[in-house]
Write a protein that binds this DNA or RNA. Structure first.
Lengths: 325, 325
DNA sequence: CCGGATGTGTCAAACGGTTGATATAAGAAC
DNA sequence: GTTCTTATATCAACCGTTTGACACATCCGG
């Protein structure tokens, strides 16, 4: 690849001059600029961002750590993170942790070494202390880490309440909640809290199953849902903590000959695009994924630029009622 | 962040020595190594990859350009690309083109400037000539670019034939094919060829609808499918060129009161994980996404390392029959 | 014709590493 | 007591950029 030196030689000036043209600094005659740009074009020259980043101590790269990009929620999240990063001239380094503690830690090292300007953390297998050494602008998704680290999250509690209330209103007498991991101290746990508070207040029999203990093992969902209905055949309402799990519930109901929504009502969570393709149409609590991503990127860039940012960023959820309730 | 100089000063040796320890070159006493590593730990030191990459002329970063990471096929593809890249100590820079020509071109520039070691191209809005200036190891997904650029693809033709034959065998008398973009010179077009050849040979009435003209406009699928059934109410078999579209077909059938598979049989393409969550279970042609990703990464790394690689890499597809046929 | 703007361009150090060449000391071989 | 190994560590140049400091013209006013 051509370097700035090649351009300088071709034009017959020093590299400093070419650099000045590149960055538009100092006095530069129109004629000089023209000659330099021409030479760049001819040589198919592109400034080496590595060298620039090294000097500027800024790489314009952000790290995105998530559990699994092939999970629809994170896929959509990543899509919008990329979109807003791009609009701000940042590049995105994709890191799938697969909820593997070692890989997550390793990626954090790699990102630090790669001099990324900041990290968006959507995967949370690490303890709070392990973050103390990162020393980099950070934004977390759905997790409250420390006083200084801003986080973005949907209003999970409200979502849990809305979903549960809907099921109750529709006449469910025994409701199951299939939750995500309740031990990771994620804010998503509030979905469970919202469910529990609502169901308790209304004095409705209920049962909770926890999934997703380590990773997105789609295959396990099937067994979990099967077991649930075997042990509690009288369940007539299910609040699943993700649309993917809700889809699995629908599948199981079909297998058992339970009609949805007549015999069992089902509501999911996330509001992923693919929910729209499920038949019957899936009722769900929709997270504002695009806004969550946009806010995450904005908070990160603001921090990178030394601005003060708000610590708590809770975005509203929306009940979307379709055919399964 | 601590630099190598800080470490050197702390240990009381030169930076060269520390660098030697870091890279395990030359004769190094055990005692020295120990002292150096200790200092590194204490200072929370990490070598600056930017500086290293600059010197080595190798960044260990690969660029991944795809249309849309939130599309399940590309999400799964990206997941595995990341997995194999990680195993080989490469990092992945995520680029969503959204099938926007300008963005795709811009990303290629950015990747070149960022000194990535190679690019996996899964988005194809560019003309062949525009690739001549890239001058970087390249692997394309589903597209044949030039003599020198290796490509990876599933056996789309065979997939098209298998899907169509299945529909015929199951007794379909009028079959529709909802294709992807037929003008982008993608190898996926062979699904269409396979369909057409099979249906023609069997002398079965058929109709083809093209989708996906510019971007993944999920919302448009609905209208397309609606129109299809309005214009051809007698269709009793649909071969959709993606599982997402197939799901939309199922939805429409339900709306129209057509029973699947009794009245209409449906088969998709891709074999994405989420297909499993659709009810009724979606029959599909499964692409070996994991293998495709693995092969892509391997071909790229081999090229980076100066090895000769095979140009054509066609991987087998598999018919997965579920409930919709 | 001197002093100061004004315009144009170069020098050299710095960013944080790596590495070939080289220096130095100690011990072994002769 | 040379000479040769072997072990240990340093010097200085380099990767491709950026930028503060400075040099040199040219022009203008006085």
């Amino acid at each position: 690849m051509a370097t700035i030196k090649d351009v300088a030689e071709k034009v017959g000036v020093s590299v400093t001059t070419v650099s000045r043209v590149l960055n538009n600094r100092g006095y530069l005659s129109e004629d000089l600029k023209r000659r330099v740009y021409e030479a760049m074009k001819e040589l198919n020259y592109q400034p080496n961002e590595l060298a620039r980043s090294l000097f500027r101590k800024k790489s314009f790269i952000i790290g995105l750590i998530i559990p699994d990009i092939s999970h629809p929620f994170f896929g959509e999240f990543a899509r919008y993170v990329e979109e807003y990063a791009y609009k701000n001239r940042y590049k995105v380094l994709l890191c799938n942790s697969q909820l593997d503690n070692k890989k997550e830690l390793d990626y954090i090292s790699m990102l630090r070494a790669s001099q990324v300007d900041g990290i968006i953390m959507g995967s949370h297998t690490l303890d709070t202390e392990e973050f103390t050494t990162i020393n980099l602008p950070l934004v977390t998704l759905d997790r409250q880490l420390s006083e200084s680290i801003p986080y973005v999250s949907a209003d999970h509690y409200k979502g849990g309440v809305l979903a549960t209330k809907l099921l109750i209103r529709k006449g469910c007498r025994k409701i199951a909640h299939i939750s995500g991991n309740l031990k990771l101290h994620l804010l998503a746990k509030s979905r469970y809290d919202g469910f529990l508070d609502t169901v308790t207040k209304a004095n409705i029999p209920h049962v909770v199953v926890e999934t997703d203990l380590n990773g997105f093992k789609y295959d396990e969902y099937e067994k979990i849902v099967e077991d649930l209905f075997r042990q509690h055949p009288d369940i007539d309402g299910v609040f699943a903590s993700s649309d993917v799990i809700a889809a699995q519930v629908l599948k199981e109901c079909r297998k058992l000959g339970k009609e949805v929504p007549k015999d069992v009502k089902v509501i999911g969570f996330d509001g992923i695009k693919l929910g729209r393709y499920i038949t019957p149409g899936l009722s769900t609590i929709q997270q504002p994924i695009k806004e969550i991503a946009k806010t995450s990127v904005q908070l990160l860039i603001d921090q990178i630029n030394g601005k003060e940012v708000q610590r708590e960023n809770i975005l509203p959820v929306k009940l979307v009622e379709k055919e399964t309730t």
